[in-house]
Simulated scan of single mutants.
Amino acid sequence: MSWCIYLTHPEVKIDPEVPVPDWGLSETGRERAARAAALPFAGDIRQVISSSEQKAIETAQVFCGRKGVFHRALRFLHENDRSATGFLPPLEFEATADAFFAKPHDSVRGWERAVDAQDRIVTGVKSALRHIPEDDPVLFVGHGAVGTLLMCHLMAVPISRAHDQKRGGSWYRFDKDWLMTQTGRNLAWTEL
Rank of each mutant, 00 (worst) to 15 (best):
V125N: 04
H131E: 15
L91S: 10
K103R: 10
A114K: 06
R66T: 09
L7E: 05
F174C: 14
N80K: 09
D119L: 08
A33L: 13
H9T: 11
S160A: 05
F93Y: 15
L74M: 09
A33N: 12
D81R: 02
K55H: 09
G65T: 02
F76P: 10
S51F: 03
T123F: 12
V18Y: 02
A95N: 11
P137Y: 02
E31I: 08
P16Q: 04
M1N: 00
S107F: 05
A38Q: 03
L91N: 05
V138W: 00
L149W: 02
P40I: 04
A145E: 15
E11T: 10
S51L: 06
G169D: 08
R35C: 10
P19N: 03
L77Y: 01
L179R: 13
A97P: 04
I49V: 15
D177F: 03
V20T: 12
T28F: 05
W3C: 07
A42Y: 07
R161Q: 04
S107D: 10
H153M: 00
Q61I: 11
V122W: 05
P133L: 08
G86K: 10
R35K: 13
D44G: 14
T8E: 09
E11K: 13
C64N: 13
Q182L: 14
D136N: 15
L7D: 06
M1A: 04
L74F: 02
F100H: 10
F101D: 11
A188E: 13
R32F: 08
C64F: 03
L154A: 06
E134H: 12
W23K: 09
F70E: 07
A73V: 01
E112F: 00
S170Q: 05
E79W: 05
